[in-house]
Design a protein around this nucleic acid. Structure first.
Lengths: 139, 139
DNA sequence: ATCTTTACTTTGACTATCAAACTAAATAAT
DNA sequence: ATTATTTAGTTTGATAGTCAAAGTAAAGAT
């Protein structure tokens, strides 16, 4: 099924491009940068995590992240916490204000999800959910 | 089915985060920037297009794109062409070298697609393809 | 004809990024 | 135990990416 694989790859890239573009346009001119929203998104969805983990999920180096987190601490969006088990590590977590920004942005995601699956039946939606769960596992 | 919708939204965001992170790590330290690869990806997948369209798909302003395209022209990745019907518009297209970079990167996408759908049967893969096609339509 | 909108460019201020050098803690090797 | 190596995070200097605003020129509307 080489044909299906090729098309699938193409559709996934297209989906990714469209999500990126949507995200950028939704974020622009709303006070926070794309990088900041991205950080809030990840912390909101996955909870407190170490700098290293966060940098990996963001796809940036830890050096870049240090600078980014400094700014976000000053903005009151996140805070640093000591890691009790490993004193080299530092935990980053959302503040109350950070959570507010997260939930606000997450609302938009829900709207988008609703929009793009408008033509899906309940059964199809469930199938789609299972597919995404399996894909995210395999990553 | 509020529950399914919530989970779906969450899984889509997770999928997006993982793709971003994968893309960044694959691109870093390979000579081209993420922004450049992103541009090559879009032009490779969709063909020649106007600055305006390209900026929208990239989720950046046309001002930013002008600077970006100037650099990429200097690098020999893309070229500008006159738009015959509308003299305000300018068409951007990949050069031969640009296509090489596109195909090289696209190979990696194929590998990733194969990896993340490893547990899928042929039938499921076809279903997934149809789902993505419908989603991309609805965007 | 003139006004308005649209497509693109330019510029200045700012933000994001990396790579490399550095500090400190954890782990491995001897 | 000591020493060497790896790991987590920070700092810094150079470069690249970004926006908003102002400018130019063409297209479309009145």
């Amino acid at each position: 099924m080489k044909q299906v694989d090729d098309q699938l790859s193409h559709e996934i890239v297209e989906f990714y491009e469209k999500l990126s573009s949507w995200e950028a346009s939704v974020v622009r001119g709303k006070g926070h940068s794309l990088a900041q929203i991205h950080t809030v998104e990840i912390l909101g969805a996955n909870g407190t995590m170490r700098m290293k983990e966060l940098a990996e999920k963001l796809g940036i180096t830890t050096g870049t992240l240090t600078v980014q987190i400094n700014k976000m601490v000053n903005l009151g969006l996140v805070e640093r916490m000591a890691h009790e088990q490993d004193k080299r590590s530092i935990l980053v977590q959302l503040t109350t204000k950070g959570y507010e920004v997260y939930h606000e942005h997450d609302q938009l995601h829900h709207q988008l999800t609703h929009q793009i699956t408008e033509t899906f039946s309940d059964i199809e939606r469930s199938q789609l959910l299972m597919f995404f769960q399996r894909i995210n596992q395999g990553f």
